[in-house]
Nucleic acid binder design. Structure first.
Length: 234
DNA sequence: AACACAGCCAACCGCCATGTC
DNA sequence: CGACATGGCGGTTGGCTGTGT
């Protein structure tokens, strides 16, 4: 039996109040991030440490961008998802000012549907040949389960082994060549200062194309015909 | 105006990885 | 080397809001 992360009896749950936010922000400004376990008590919060961490990372961090996703952010997320699968933290790490939770929500609510409308299976980024898409119907399953019906897609069971990045629901997992050598040292959505340039998106392509992660399409061997998987990359 | 439904998103839960003793 | 503590991640849930009838 696993110990709960905190004494649930003494903790608040649910939405954060402004006072709680303020306490958390003040504390982290003074003492920095970390020690989430002890932070709530030290900051005078009746919250679980995990909850504080989530609140800070997803909402209170000063470098968060928030607001609508730009078109190029959409493209980047789709490309990265094709490569990485549901590795939201890695994907978010390439999107300055965005959190994994935000990217995940955006994927499930917008991009997934967008791909389906284009006839692309969002799970493996291949063209869907079977059954015509039912226009914007929500999956018949319960709320909160964005998985499309089995008629439309082939489920790719995500793996948990983080060393096998290419396996995790990636569209490329059964490419004959496999995934090109990727530098997956993508780690991290560091709470670094927001990049001041107006065009912070497309970092992948524009800012550091050679030293970070390979361009998905460009990394194919010359002469390799693009699979339907890669339609998006063209 | 009232209700039902769908979509969005913040927050929670449980598991896994890593660090420390 | 194993046990434990902690941090981090992805999946899921639940409440709020917008829209259609």
């Amino acid at each position: 039996m696993r110990k709960p992360c905190c004494d649930k009896q003494d903790t608040n749950k649910g939405a954060w109040s402004k006072q709680e936010d303020q306490k958390l922000v003040d504390y982290i400004r003074k003492h920095g991030e970390g020690s989430w376990r002890t932070l709530p008590q030290a900051a005078g919060l009746l919250r679980c440490g995990k909850s504080c961490r989530l609140r800070w990372i997803n909402y209170l961090r000063p470098d968060l961008k928030r607001g609508n996703f730009a078109e190029d952010e959409d493209d980047l997320i789709i490309k990265l998802h094709a490569l990485l699968g549901n590795r939201w933290s890695l994907i978010a790490g390439r999107l300055p000012g965005r959190t994994d939770n935000e990217v995940k929500n955006y994927w499930n609510s917008h991009l997934r549907r967008k791909l389906l409308k284009l006839g692309i299976d969002p799970n493996n980024h291949r063209m869907v040949h079977i059954s015509p898409l039912r226009p914007t119907t929500k999956p018949s399953t319960t709320k909160g389960n964005p998985n499309p019906s089995p008629h439309e897609v082939t489920q790719v069971k995500p793996l948990h082994n983080k060393d096998q990045v290419s396996d995790t629901g990636s569209c490329l997992e059964d490419e004959p060549r496999g995934v090109p050598d990727l530098n997956l040292d993508l780690t991290i959505n560091n709470p670094q200062p927001v990049i001041p340039e107006p065009h912070q998106n497309n970092l992948l392509e524009k800012q550091n194309p050679s030293t970070t992660m390979s361009d998905p399409a460009g990394d194919l061997e010359p002469g390799t015909p693009p699979s339907s998987t890669l339609l998006l990359f063209q």
